[in-house]
Design a protein around this nucleic acid. Structure first.
Length: 481
RNA sequence: CGCGGGGUAGAGAAAUGGCAUCUCGCAAGGCUCAUAACCUUGAGAUUGUGGGUUCGAGUCCCACCCCCGCAACCA
């Protein structure tokens, strides 16, 4: 019954590429975990999934940081990028590719992208005028000035004019509004769609896409005095990674992206500038942009100056990857802002994971070992239908799906207490067997539904239940004080 | 009048205009298969403020107060 139309559906999902000026923190981990979960879910559904993440490595800030660290730029970005892939690996995140903007394959694709842009007639040479703070080595906004001086350096900025290349973003207002309104470009959650639409309706200004003063960036192919503005370079990673220009067959197999995940701070770049650039070079626009909220830590904004930035590696080392994945997706409804802390992680870990899922698994496997000699035979149908949980995950409603699964864990605990198998085993062992077979089937189903979020835990549950001779294992989650 | 989101027990969340629900925490009781785990019951909310519509408002309308993002060359 196989024919061409039976080929699995492709599913291309991306995270932003992270700026290597900083170490991975809990926010970038959140985006990447969510993308990994969606990728695993779609793989479970038999789709041909491509999951991309990576690092953004160009920019003066990077060059400056490398300088400060006394390192050669390329060596510096190599080290920083490795920190990201290490952190993701520790979190059980398994991308299909990890793109770095300093890789030749990316640089080549960006150069081609800019040549196409130039051919499109949508770019022109213009002048950018602004206030330049020499100490900052950057333009600063007039609204940031205090008494006409740079607030950080107390110096008067120079008013300078710089020749730049501009992109006619303003040409795309109408078409973008149309495509977003009819969900050809779907923006989630709904509030973000409204935000972008109202932004678009206020009108668009052209944007400069090159820089004269930039040091560590890709040179503009037709003007050696200018370098490509890093945002333009970075956005194109989504195309360069899947072979734009180098392997067109592969590129067209995966493009357009089915879902692009990110924090709410960068949706304007992705919902406005990015699709406009793609339209200019005649490529399709992404199907869906999904924005999530921001974390506060103990009610405070996460910041380096406050010193409350959470390194995901610390949490993983103490609680394990699955617990961190569970916590972040369970604690805050996806899309909204939320507060996290180790205190809250510990509550979820001990309450939901150790006392909830872990303890249920212990009591069930222990009774199977004791009362059934470890024999559960073939799996029967689960007494509960958990498809609503998978549906919720599919729609990025991670916390809701997890709530549904944990409702069934509570139901199972109640059922055991009401049935009193420890008494029943003396009089009606058949009923105990029926009870335990049902509970095994439920746990097996829970493991399956949970696998995208907690792959390691799901595997541990499966190993025990599929072993043929069930024995009570080590706790899934040892309590932590 | 810049744009958007939000304000519901101590904390966090949920509620097609129809008995305000759930989780954590707190209090009391029960159980012994289980990780001092699990189960039952209880206390705890004039749903930010003031008005309006309605038989009936957390929900719809108006005004106000407060919190959080964004405001494009900062990733």
């Amino acid at each position: 019954m196989k024919n061409m139309s039976d080929e699995p559906r492709k599913f291309y999902i991306t995270t932003p590429i992270y700026y290597v000026n900083d170490k991975p923190h809990i926010g970038s981990a959140y985006t990447t975990i969510a993308a990994d979960v969606i990728a695993r879910l779609h793989r479970q559904l038999g789709e041909d999934v491509f999951f991309l993440t990576g690092t953004a490595e160009h920019g003066d800030k990077i060059a400056g940081s490398a300088d400060k660290a006394g390192k050669e730029v390329q060596k510096f970005v190599d080290e920083m990028s490795a920190k990201f892939s290490f952190a993701w690996d520790q979190l059980g995140i398994a991308p299909d590719d990890f793109i770095r903007t300093t890789e030749q394959r990316h640089v080549d694709a960006v150069v081609l992208f800019f040549k196409k842009l130039k051919e499109s007639g949508k770019i022109y040479e213009g002048e950018y005028e602004g206030l330049y703070c020499v100490a900052h080595e950057a333009f600063i906004k007039e609204s940031d000035l205090v008494n006409g001086l740079c607030p950080d350096h107390k110096t008067k900025p120079d008013k300078i004019k710089e020749k730049n290349w501009f992109f006619k973003l303003s040409d795309y207002q109408g078409v973008l509004i149309e495509k977003i309104e009819n969900d050809e470009l779907s923006i989630r959650p709904h509030e973000r769609k409204n935000e972008i639409l109202s932004f678009l309706k206020h009108g668009l200004e052209d944007i400069s896409i090159s820089r004269q003063k930039a040091k560590f960036a890709i040179p503009l192919p037709w003007d050696e005095n200018q370098r490509i503005y890093v945002w333009m370079d970075e956005l194109f990673n989504y195309c360069s990674a899947i072979g734009y220009g180098a392997d067109q067959e592969r590129f067209h197999k995966y493009w357009p992206a089915d879902a692009q995940l990110m924090g709410k701070d960068i949706i304007k770049f992705h919902c406005v500038i990015w699709p406009a650039l793609l339209l200019a070079i005649g490529e399709e626009i992404p199907k869906k942009i999904v924005a999530h909220g921001f974390f506060t830590v103990d009610g405070q904004k996460m910041s380096k100056t406050i010193g409350n930035v959470i390194d995901p590696n610390d949490w993983v080392a103490k609680y394990g990857a699955d617990a961190v994945r569970y916590f972040l997706l369970r604690e805050v409804p996806f899309g909204q802002d939320g507060d996290v802390s180790e205190e809250k992680l510990k509550l979820r870990y001990n309450g939901d994971l150790a006392n909830g899922l872990g303890n249920l698994f212990s009591r069930v496997t222990n009774m199977i070992e004791k009362y059934l000699d470890g024999d559960i035979g073939d799996f029967i149908k689960s007494p509960k239908d958990l498809s609503a949980a998978s549906d919720a995950f599919y729609n990025f409603d991670f916390s809701e799906g997890l709530v549904l699964i944990w409702k069934e864990i509570a139901w199972a605990n109640q059922l055991i207490d009401r049935s009193k198998p420890w008494e029943l085993v003396k009089t009606e062992p058949d009923k105990v067997k029926e009870l335990l077979l049902n509970l095994s089937a439920l746990l097996y189903d829970i493991a399956k539904k949970l696998a995208p979020i907690m792959p390691e835990t799901a595997q541990r549950i499966n190993q025990v239940l599929e072993s043929g001779e069930v024995k009570k294992p080590e706790p899934l989650f040892a309590k932590i004080d």
